[in-house]
């Protein structure tokens, strides 16, 4: 995990290095908003990994978080479905709303939140169980189905949507860990969509894959946009440019700039963004 890098980057001297005039408080999306965050800070113990980030995520779009390693983009992503809760020393302040509801409200059941905001991780992490069981697990624990037929149905559609069905339909009972890396990642995507989330968070989903598998996943992300809101953290600017409609650029825990992917890549407002895009640092 890259958590340690986040914390390292949050040294104090970094602040005066480049304090960008963030769009704090102002909406970054015009139109409907799925997830809205305002003045979000994330701390690891004493160290601050995310500083006053406010951004909006539009529904049925792919939003990409880019930035140099350790800039806090993964940390922020994990704040969106409260995956940071599992790290004891991690503290989140500020306001994150999903469809207008504060997800850090005390009354929010984190389990239900994660069912609405699913996640795909950097390294494919199928359960050491059969392909079928991997996908069926979510619907089972959330009680989404009453009959075996419905479950079969969900497993098949999910695998189909993840573009994996044709490759595995004859061997649903074989272990998910036996698949290739790209297939494993698509299995993880199928597992995430099996609980019908509204938002899917993807934390560098292709970083462990070869180019061909990457291309397949990117294609899949583009298709999934129809039904889901997708947030993807990526290292690769080309990938961000290829799959996303909107891009947010993070640097040292700050949100430097956010806008249409095209604008960000062709005509960034901030010189830091420009420098990163043109490869002067990163």
């Amino acid at each position: 995990m890259s958590d340690e890098q986040h914390t390292e980057s949050a040294h104090d001297h970094a602040q005066d290095h480049a304090r960008p005039d963030t769009t704090a408080g102002k909406p970054t999306v015009d139109g409907p908003v799925k997830v809205a965050s305002r003045h979000v800070d994330v701390f690891y113990g004493e160290k601050q990994a995310i500083k006053d980030v406010s951004l909006d995520i539009a529904p049925n779009e792919v939003t990409a978080f880019i930035g140099p390693s350790g800039c806090g983009k993964s940390t922020f992503l994990r704040a969106l479905n409260r995956m940071n809760d599992i790290i004891d020393i991690c503290r989140v302040t500020g306001d994150i709303r999903l469809d207008g509801d504060d997800i850090y409200d005390r009354r929010v059941d984190v389990v239900q939140l994660r069912a609405r905001v699913g996640m795909v991780f950097q390294k494919p992490n199928p359960f050491p169980k059969s392909i079928y069981e991997n996908v069926a697990y979510g619907p089972r624990i959330h009680g989404l189905v009453a009959h075996k037929d419905e479950l079969d149905e969900i497993v098949h559609t999910s695998l189909d949507r993840a573009g994996l069905l044709n490759e595995v339909k004859d061997r649903l009972e074989t272990p998910g860990t036996g698949l290739s890396g790209g297939q494993q990642q698509r299995l993880c995507i199928a597992r995430a969509i099996a609980v019908s989330p509204e938002v899917i968070l993807m934390d560098e989903p292709c970083s462990a894959l070869d180019p061909i598998a990457t291309a397949k996943i990117e294609e899949l992300i583009d298709e999934l946009r129809e039904n889901y809101t997708i947030v993807i953290v990526t290292h690769s600017m080309q990938q961000a440019a290829r799959v996303s409609q909107r891009t947010a650029f993070f640097h040292l825990g700050h949100l430097v700039e956010m806008g249409d992917t095209e604008t960000i890549f062709t005509n960034p407002e901030h010189r830091l963004t420009q420098g990163y895009i043109t490869g002067r640092f990163g």
């Binding site: 939140l113 994660r114 979510g138």
Partner: peptide, 27 residues
């Protein structure tokens, strides 16, 4: 048991206890 297994289960919305009883304990 690698943490990725725990994250995977939490990521699909399993509770902590479900994560442990369904995935971590058997392993």
């Amino acid at each position: 048991v690698p943490p990725s297994i725990r994250e995977a289960a939490l990521g699909v919305g399993a509770s902590k206890l479900q994560t442990i009883t369904h995935h971590v304990l058997p392993l």
